[in-house]
Each structure stands twice: as C-alpha cells, then as structure tokens.
C-alpha cells in the first residue's frame, strides 16, 4: 500500500493525515469540499497518521491504527471502521490540544446571526437535532465540539461531517434525502455509525464565527412532543462546565467567559421525539 499525505482544513485548524488507506481518503473527499484540501500548508496544527495494524491480529482481521504526532492514543480498530477512527481521532486531537479555545462537548448551529449551543451527554440527541436543523435552514458550526473564542465569546465553526449513530442514520436519510453520507461502519463501540457531509452553505461560511444566543439542552424521547422549557442559568452553567473539555484549564477566565455567555443567552431544556416538530420549535425560538 502506498502512503499519501493529505492536508485537511478543520475550521481554524489544519491537519496533515498520512495513510496508505486510499479508500478512507476517497471517503474524506466526498465528505469535505475540495477547498478544505490544501496542497501545501504553511503551518500544520496536527500531524496524524492512519496506519495498518501490526502484530498477530492483523493476520486475523485487517486493522487500522490512529497516531497523533507519532503517538498512538487508541486501541487499533477493524479496518472497516477506519474512517470513523479518523474522525474520532481528529476530535481527540482538537479537544486535547486546542486549549486556546474553551471547548464544550456540544453541537452548535446558527440562525439569524446567533448560535444555539446544544450540550449533551451521548444519546441525548444533540447530533441528531443538529443534523435535522442544518437541513431546515440552520448553519452547522459543529456537531461535537463547540469552540468558544476566549477574547469575544464567539463560537468558531468547524463545519465537519456530522457523526450519526444507529437509528439516527436511517432517520436522517429520510429527513434529508439529498444529503451525502459515508458508508456505515458496523459494530463499533458506538454501534453503527455514519458521517453526513455538512450542507454547502455551512462549508462556505466556515470562517464566520458568531455569538451564542441560546443554550439548549436537548433530550430525545421516543414519541415526545417538542417542548422547550426555560432552564435556570446557574444550573445550565454548571452543567455546561461539566460538558467542557478544558474548563478547569481556563480557571477563573473560563468561568467568566461562560458567565458572559449565559448572561446574554436564553437557557432552555428541550425534549423532542420528531425532527420536523423539533425544527419548527427551534425556528420559532430563533425568530422570537
């Protein structure tokens, strides 16, 4: 297998990926626009590699390893999960190294110039809600890592593919039939996963940071009507601090940054069971 290196733009960052997995590179080219691939980057933030497995296991089943700056942080995964491994590995690299941002484990979408931050633990439905909203007029900034700029509190876009899991994949195929999806990877630690390319407008506006307007804690519940309820700002701030990847590193400045965001944002809990209803409720919130 011949190795190649592709230099890929991830919002404000640049990653150089070296790999012999040509099929993964082809998938990345379907999921990211051509303008995100750079022939020559003056500066690279992350040097990563996706390499074949080594040792006895590779003879039993083809494996893939992900390295950041030559260091292997994850166990190898089956080679048919290599694309998911790249996306998870890039998230790990950003969350672990980009401490000049306050990084919240949250999706972030924008409408009418203001961002809705959607924090949530795995399974809360934040990626699914974000995926639905970006096909109903919202702009994707991120489905997983909300990057908060320290000097002005604005959210900086990543505009990377949305990670979908299990039943959300089929749900989004029906909800957005024109969207571009990767082939699903089965039996991963998160179940079946697939990536969905961000809409063209989100990709074209990747340089446009925007201020937060709402913090919405989503919770998907089967059959539940869409319901927005006001949520206490102190409770929300503490919960979002829990969801921050690096809040403790920012100390007092991190608290002041979050406090400023909450002072100027509406804070809600949002339960939903249907994406069309959810989009209507969120559109009404953004229009109010």
């Amino acid at each position: 297998m011949n190795e190649q290196t592709v230099t890929l733009r991830l919002g404000p960052f640049t990653a150089a990926l070296t790999t012999p997995f040509a099929d993964v590179v082809e998938e990345l080219k379907r999921l990211y626009p051509a303008s995100f691939f750079q022939n020559r980057a003056a500066f690279v933030d992350f040097r990563v590699a996706l390499l074949p497995g080594k040792g006895m296991h590779r003879r039993l089943r083809k494996q893939a390893r992900f390295l950041i700056d030559g260091q292997e942080h994850f166990k190898p995964l089956p080679a048919d999960q290599a694309l998911a491994l790249v996306e998870w590995g890039l998230n790990y690299a950003i969350a672990g190294l980009a401490h000049h941002y306050l990084i919240i484990h949250a999706a972030a979408v924008e409408k009418n110039g203001r961002v809705t931050i959607l924090p949530g633990s795995p399974g809360a439905g934040k990626s699914t809600l974000a995926a639905g909203l970006i096909h109903r007029g919202w702009r994707l900034l991120s489905d997983e890592l909300a990057l908060i700029r320290r000097h002005d509190g604005k959210v900086v876009p990543l505009a990377r593919p949305v990670n979908l899991k299990n039943q959300s994949i089929e749900l989004m195929r029906r909800f957005a039939p024109g969207a571009v999806f990767s082939a699903p990877a089965f039996d991963t630690v998160k179940g079946t996963v697939a990536l969905m390319r961000a809409p063209e407008e989100s990709l074209a506006r990747v340089d446009e940071a925007a201020p937060p307007g709402w913090i919405v804690f989503p919770q998907w519940r089967q059959g539940a009507p869409a319901r927005l309820e006001r949520f206490s700002r102190p409770a929300g701030l503490v919960e979002i601090a829990h969801n921050a990847m690096n809040h403790s590193l920012h100390g007092e400045d991190g608290f002041e940054l979050l406090a400023g965001i909450f002072a100027n944002s509406g804070c809600y809990r949002f339960s939903y069971g249907d994406l069309n209803e959810a989009a209507s409720a969120m559109n009404a919130l953004a229009a109010a």
Binding site: S232, R233, P234, L237, V238, A263
Partner: peptide, 28 residues
Amino acid sequence: VRWRLWEDEAAVYNGRTGDTHHLADFAA
C-alpha cells in the same frame, strides 16, 4: 470565589479547587 446570581440561584466558581457549584433555595 467568582459568582453570578440569577433568578434566586447562584453559579459559583472556586478558584482554589476549580469546582463550579450551583446554589439553590436557602443556600443561594
């Protein structure tokens, strides 16, 4: 300690421990 008071509740950051607390009701 840094804090914000909203709606009869408080978000409180303790710079010594790095903990963030939500104070409600009588404690708030």
